[in-house]
């Protein structure tokens, strides 16, 4: 087995959870060189379970996980590094903050007592960068969803992790707030040079965030590549000189619903959720494969 020297995270493992009568098997294989890796797929495909294995909260039955050349898990050599020794930051979707601590207490939670003072500057500038400096004394239950996730991010970064794991961190935040947080996260990761694994089931978020995307389907990682190769291209196309004459939907809502758009001299048919037309004759096409040209 040879690995390129710049591989930060290498994961290839299997694990089974659930009861013997109703098991869920996960088979994961992916690499992260630098930047942000998106784990994308529908709910229940095994993304969060993969994150739990990377964090060390669940142990793979077979396989290996290496981070910066060091094994975190190697089942052949019976290596299982404990979660607390992995130096991996975690930002969960829900219940991310300690309710019994104020914002500053949350951000400094992972710092050893003797470092809280010496690293005060780092903490202050992190809170500044994330726009939560003015909330230092606030209690978590007084914060908005977006503010909570900013605090959770600051807390994870304050201990200078080797890797950051984010489990649908912005899923319960409104669109505008999510965009802002996506931008902040990207610039912070870049500035601090911290690699990250980001779980989402939202295709737009996957496109925006990932330099690399891993596709999850029913407990397996099926493909890894650039977002445009894995997720297809989301492009708004204007067709000049054409008038939308009729939009016709057929089939029940769900997997096999299709949409047919009749133009002056052409007809487009495709899955309903990937084909839209508005009254100005603009078409919204989500293509599975990259469009040429």
């Amino acid at each position: 087995m040879t690995l390129a020297n710049d591989t930060t995270l290498d994961a290839r493992f299997t694990l089974t959870v659930g009861s013997p009568s109703n098991p869920f098997c996960l088979e994961a294989q992916f690499q992260l060189d630098r930047g942000l890796l998106v784990l994308f797929g529908p709910s229940g495909a095994g993304k969060s379970l993969t994150l739990a294995a990377l964090a060390g909260h669940i142990s793979p039955q077979e396989g290996l996980i290496t981070l910066a050349g060091q094994p975190l898990v190697d089942t052949r050599r019976s290596i299982h590094v404990a979660a607390r020794d992995r130096r991996i930051g975690l930002v969960p979707q829900h219940n991310s903050l300690f309710p019994f601590r104020d914002v500053r207490g949350n951000v400094t939670f992972g710092l050893p007592r003797d470092q809280r003072r010496s690293r005060n500057d780092v903490v202050e500038s992190l809170m500044d960068e994330l726009g939560i400096a003015h909330l230092a004394d606030a209690r978590p239950d007084a914060l908005s969803g977006g503010e909570r996730q900013r605090v959770a991010l600051a807390r994870a970064l304050a201990v200078r992790p080797q890797l950051l794991l984010l489990d649908e961190p912005f899923a319960s935040i409104d669109d505008a707030g999510r965009r802002a947080l996506q931008d902040i996260l990207q610039s912070i990761l870049k500035d601090h040079g911290i690699p990250a694994v980001f779980v989402t089931h939202d295709v737009d978020e996957a496109r925006r965030m990932g330099q690399q995307v891993v596709l999850f389907e029913r407990g397996r990682t099926t493909r890894q590549g650039r977002p445009r190769d894995i997720l297809g291209i989301d492009r708004k196309v204007s067709i000049t000189g054409q008038v939308v004459e009729e939009v016709e939907a057929s089939g029940a809502d769900g997997g096999d619903a299709t949409q047919t758009i009749r133009l002056s001299s052409a007809t487009l048919t495709g899955p309903r959720d990937s084909l839209e037309a508005n009254e100005q004759g603009q078409l919204h096409i989500q293509a599975e494969l990259p469009l040429k040209g």
Binding site: R84, G89, P92, N95, G110, A152
Partner: peptide
Amino acid sequence: VPVELEQVASSLGLS
């Protein structure tokens, strides 16, 4: 107690 809190804490290095 939400299990996420304990997971975050152990990832922050707590025994």
